[in-house]
């Protein structure tokens, strides 16, 4: 079990984390941040193993992970 936090104000909705999450548990939310992008969010944090693939691929250092 891991804890994942998204700094939504930094996210530009590029979708790389969504693509590279091996368990496909990340999606872009309906909300819009101050830049007008749909920030990424985790769907089912319980299944997250903390592999950090999403964080590695994120171009804006949005994701913080604890395990």
């Amino acid at each position: 079990m891991a804890q994942v936090s998204f700094n939504e104000e930094l996210c530009k909705g590029c979708g790389l984390c969504v693509e590279y999450c091996p368990l496909k548990i990340i999606e872009l939310s309906e909300k819009i941040n101050s830049m007008g992008y749909h920030p990424a969010q985790i769907i089912d944090v319980n299944r997250c193993t903390g592999c950090a693939f999403c964080a590695m691929m994120c171009p804006d250092v949005v994701i913080r992970i604890e395990r």
Binding site: E9, K12, G13, C14, G50, P59, D60, R67
Partner: peptide
């Protein structure tokens, strides 16, 4: 819980000015 991934100290708090999906941010 141990931090596995976080913003490095050598980066300021400034938001990157790069386009969505640009690899400058990763580098």
């Amino acid at each position: 819980m141990e931090v596995v991934f976080q913003r490095p100290q050598a980066l300021t708090e400034e938001k990157f000015s790069y386009c969505p999906g640009c690899h400058h941010g990763i580098i």
